[in-house]
């Protein structure tokens, strides 16, 4: 996926068209389809995050990880989605979640430097992620560094942290043993701690 898409503005009021997404998931090689898919998932996650925060006072229980999962369930419906599609979806969704948070963090840091402060629902989710990662912008840079050296390790961190995918599922998605995933995950985590320290 081209780098510039990560800063793409979410499409306003976009609908989560299940059929279209399924179609897009099947066209994995097509770059334009990938682009469109990313925008759709980004928009859906963003919409959900916003809605979720509004629901708070109504007593709703959900985990952050469920953001991506909910989007998936909505997409997959009761049909059994093909495995490759599912795998592809989670990669895209984790990346979209990462973009949402990083975009938000960058906007906020611009605001700090003189812009007006606007409180948005993403704030609250973002705070939670920051509590687990020190600084999201630095993490983003460090992940880029990691990725150039060890693409698998970087992908694991992205899927786990931003996508909320369990290590067991990551092993399935990547088609490698859980042991290997765990080793890479622990190593990457320690390395990122070292870099972000």
């Amino acid at each position: 996926m081209p780098r510039e898409i990560r800063t793409a503005v979410p499409m306003a009021g976009s609908d989560f068209d299940v059929r279209e997404i399924t179609q897009l998931l099947n066209q994995r090689e097509d770059e334009a389809a990938g682009d469109r898919l990313f925008r759709l998932v980004y928009a859906e996650l963003h919409r959900q995050a916003t809605q979720l925060m509004r629901k708070q006072d109504r007593g709703h229980t959900l985990q952050a990880t469920a953001l991506v999962n909910e989007a998936y369930l909505k997409l997959a419906g009761s049909d059994d989605m093909r495995w490759e599609c599912r795998s592809h979806f989670f990669s895209v969704a984790a990346r979209a979640m990462r973009s949402i948070l990083i975009d938000h963090a960058r906007t906020k840091s611009r605001q700090k430097r003189g812009g007006e402060m606007v409180r948005v629902p993403i704030d609250e989710i973002s705070v939670l992620y920051e509590s687990r990662a020190v600084d999201l912008i630095q993490l983003d840079d460090a992940l880029e560094q990691l990725s150039s050296r060890d693409a698998l390790a970087a992908r694991i961190v992205e899927l786990r942290f931003f996508g909320g995918v369990t290590l067991v599922d990551i092993a399935r998605l990547q088609g490698v043993s859980i042991r290997r995933i765990e080793r890479n995950w622990e190593f990457a985590r320690s390395w990122l701690r070292l870099v972000l320290r």
Binding site: Q56, H60, T61, A64, L128, R132, V157, F161, G164, R189
Partner: peptide, 15 residues
């Protein structure tokens, strides 16, 4: 290190 580092967070929501 902090065991929660890079673990996906749990949203603060009413139980």
């Amino acid at each position: 290190g902090d065991p929660e580092f890079l673990q996906p967070p749990t949203l603060s929501l009413t139980l």
